[in-house]
Design a protein around this nucleic acid. Structure first.
Lengths: 350, 350
DNA sequence: CTGAAAGCGCTTACAG
DNA sequence: CTGAAAGCGCTTACAG
């Protein structure tokens, strides 16, 4: 064992010597250049395999090859740890990257307003270890993101959109902007007119959209908008629960017949609050969410929601980011996905 | 904008010139060497900041610095995507690594028996882009893992233990080996004698342990071990559900009074199966799991289980791996964590 | 406390 | 189809 470790690790020079060719040729074989006769390729490969040679990224990087690595920046740690959607996102991203030959380097920060976090991210972006970065959970228009975009870095963003300043190296994938209205329309069609709205962090593009479009729909439908029924409920089960408790207690017994929660996690929080207050879903109060969280199939009752295909969204984002890295033509900079109403059992017809 | 991009990116040489020192000194400042007078340090730092200089990892790597990157290898993709514990693991690992100044590079493979997957992992380990790797979901004694250990790579493993061949560069963190017995003892103490066991993938160290220790406890307690009540239930909700359905149907109406599931996900599957067959938990059938999944607080009824502190486990693993990378003294190679019985409401006293 | 120089391991025009 | 040579950006003994 000691012996093994002390064997000098071979480099491309050694392989070249053993194979009786130049390092140029070894490099050509490794990188699958076409102008190498098959016989040469075979013999070089044989030497490489027999000697367990692995090209060092240090050399490759230094000579200007891409790192074939994508940075994945998660914002707001607590939300990640608790939301089981995160692991779905993660698998979609890592798989899509792997399919293109890319690895994923992860970084989790609570917030970008913290100078240390921002410096850390800047460093990762600027030190040559990644070819591009993807952000999840960034506030819309986040200065650090825009700084990186302006510096020419390739950045992919989930749920982020700046209509006024498209940029070839800022790739985004988004939820349709109308899903709030669709939820309200559905509730109305089911006979509800007294609707509570639990919105999320309005600095996030989708939360703002959902909220705006839902209020618009309420007005259009001529519903009464009771101030005490419109509350900020964050984006987690816990914050949703707390907001729902507060809201339900604040409405002086005049409960809404339905609640629109800006995401499924929050909707689960509403379930819990309803139970605590002795309200049955959907008999006493209907609930509709947004996202299409798979967990919603197993809740009691199963959650009615506006579902999105997250896997498709992330695969598209990763592919467009990689296309940009590889200077292929990418026509789509911003992309919006439609949601589908998943009518399960948490909304009752009145 | 075009202008900005065409500005030649500066290297340490440029910084040196601008600061009126040598590249050696620039390097010393960047790496916080003590033998630099404060005035020099200040002026160099000023030039670095003003010019937005970031040392390139390519150079650092080539000159032999560590990559300060840990590979995280997830095996069995499907289990990751569906289990919300994964994102907890992930956050614990990434955070613990960040606390030591390390980044995490992720790789997901379905299985290591696939030659392509194994090659991919070998390449990541041997190409100098990571200082160490951590495996989650590896079978005990996995040949690829042992190959890497033999080659002197530093590898950290969750749920993996080879009593016969400890190695200074194979660091592990494990569940206590007795938790199966503890679950059985608890059920017995609650008056159960007719117990079904749904075990998991026996190639995993913990699954094998849990199963073995639980059977042992059953014998010790003099319980009847009915063959049809002992089934393989995998490690996911779905596989647990299927195993439970099969098992409950196979016992010809002579239902067990309690079920021990080798992990919480499987226990949730048992809940679903019980519901489908019209059995109430715990009135008609008690269920105990293992893991301490936070989701178990919210199920109906809340799940009684043997809980582990995953965060502590992963933080310890990451720290010992980093210690080994940095050649600090690490005394603990294998570590076992105790579980705590979390007595919620899914086990009824008979 | 500081600098000149060697060295790390690759790829890629370039010339043939 | 192939090789010699330049070059990529850093760190680190070494000498002073």
């Amino acid at each position: 064992m000691k012996g093994m470790e002390s064997v000098k690790k071979l480099g491309s020079k050694d392989i070249a010597k053993l194979a009786g060719v130049s390092r140029s040729t070894v490099s050509r074989v490794i990188n699958n250049y076409p102008n190498v006769p098959d016989s040469t390729r075979q013999s070089v490969m044989k030497v490489i395999r027999e000697n367990h040679y692995f090209p060092q990224v240090s050399g490759q990087l230094l000579s200007g090859m891409p790192s074939r690595t994508i940075g994945l920046f998660w914002l707001s740690k607590s939300a990640i740890a608790k939301d089981s959607l995160s692991s779905q996102y993660f698998v979609s991203i890592v798989d899509a990257a792997a399919a293109r030959g890319y690895l994923v380097l992860s970084c989790i920060e609570e917030s970008l307003s913290d100078a240390k976090s921002a410096d850390n991210i800047r460093k990762i972006f600027m030190s040559g270890r990644i070819d591009a970065g993807i952000f999840i959970g960034a506030e819309n228009g986040e200065p650090l993101v825009e700084e990186l975009v302006a510096l020419g870095r390739i950045v992919g963003l989930f749920d982020y959109f700046l209509a006024a300043s498209p940029s070839a190296n800022r790739l985004t994938v988004n939820f349709e902007r109308n899903s709030g209205a669709r939820a309200i329309d559905f509730l109305c069609d089911m006979g509800h007119r007294d609707i509570a709205v639990i919105y999320g962090d309005l600095k996030r593009f989708s939360s703002a959209n959902r909220h705006e479009s839902c209020l618009q729909a309420m007005r259009k439908r001529g519903l009464e908008i009771r101030r005490e029924l419109i509350t900020d409920g964050g984006i987690t089960v816990k914050s949703g629960y707390e907001a729902a408790i507060k809201m339900l207690k604040a409405c002086g017994g005049r409960y809404p017949t339905a609640v629109y929660a800006n995401n499924d996690a929050v909707a689960f929080g509403v379930y819990r609050a309803a139970e605590e207050l002795g309200l049955r879903v959907p008999e006493d109060i209907s609930v509709i969410g947004s996202d299409g969280h798979s967990h919603g199939e197993d809740t009691k009752p199963p959650l009615t929601t506006i579902g999105f295909d997250f896997d498709k969204m992330f695969v598209s984002l990763v592919n467009r980011v990689v296309d940009t890295v590889e200077k292929r033509e990418t026509y789509i900079v911003d992309e919006f996905f439609w949601g589908n109403l998943i009518n399960r059992e948490s909304v009752k017809r009145l």
